[in-house]
Design a binder for these strands. Structure first.
Length: 265
DNA sequence: ATGCCAGGTAACACCTGA
């Protein structure tokens, strides 16, 4: 079969903080922004409880890797979804649903990632975070070996640079800003990944998350912690990227807002 | 030093989040 002609697709990542609580917001944004592929995080429900009919009605196929109460990741696509694979190798005994990858549009391999928060410092949660990034590193390294077009998108829970937070001093003792977290995030990039948003937007202090508390949204006290990381072939296909702040200003908003990119694949 | 706000669960308090 001859290869199909190139087409432009829009891909986004969005931590929705409960897909059931956020369903009206998600449906409204899908209708307005019309992304072709969406990586969701923090579903906070099992697969059987995912509101799939409402999303399928908008023309999306769905693959989900859910969990009761916490975590949970999904991939929506206007194309068929092939070879969905939940979990990271080395997940043995780890019940936390934080990783799902699949092929969309017959030629783009995408992963929806919900990296552990890791707070507080000194706890098992921080150790788990670092170990989890190490497993992600191994997975990406294997993936990049075959020159496929790949996007690793999601909530990375790392403040990579001081310019990616309204005041780095506030996060001095936070797991998101620790040198160990940052070094591991940089190591992912050093495998050869391109930050899609930063390929088109170099201005400092652009955010994807604003806390619900203390008027953070109104004061623009945000963090940039959601990323679309592109393999070399996918980076070559990028035509644009941005952050859609609209959903964060809506009623009953998630504390994260979508980060998107367009690719000519 | 702590809570602020929000969601889920289970029970009307507590855990998690970042």
């Amino acid at each position: 079969m001859p290869p199909s002609p190139p087409r432009k697709i829009k891909l986004a990542t969005w931590n929705v903080n409960s897909v059931r609580a956020r369903l009206p917001n998600v449906l409204a944004w899908l209708k307005e922004a019309r992304p072709d592929v969406v990586l969701l995080q923090e579903l906070k429900c099992v697969d059987d409880a995912f509101p799939r009919l409402e999303i399928e009605e908008l023309g999306y196929n769905l693959a989900s890797h859910g969990q009761k109460t916490y975590n949970g990741v999904a991939i929506l696509s206007k194309s068929p979804i092939e070879n969905a694979a939940p979990g990271l190798p080395g997940d043995d005994g780890d019940a936390q649903a934080r990783y799902l990858e699949a092929t969309v549009f017959g030629r783009l391999r995408v992963a929806s990632i919900y990296l552990p928060n890791g707070n507080p410092l000194g706890s098992e949660k921080f150790t788990y975070k670092l170990a989890w990034i190490n497993r992600l590193y191994a997975q990406i390294k294997r993936g990049l070996a075959d020159s496929e077009m790949r996007i690793y998108g999601g909530d990375y829970n790392v403040i990579a640079k001081d310019d990616d937070v309204y005041d780095p001093r506030v996060f001095k003792d936070d797991a998101l800003l620790q040198p160990e977290s940052r070094a591991r995030f940089r190591a992912l990039l050093h495998l050869g990944l391109t930050d899609a948003f930063r390929a088109f937007n170099t201005k400092p202090h652009q955010y994807s998350y604003w806390d619900y508390q203390a008027g953070a949204w109104q004061k623009d006290h945000g963090l940039l912690i959601d990323f679309l990381l592109a393999s070399p072939v996918a980076a070559d296909a990028l035509v644009n990227a941005g952050i859609d702040k609209g959903p964060r200003g809506q009623e009953k908003a998630s504390d994260h807002t979508p980060v998107w990119c367009e690719l000519s694949i």
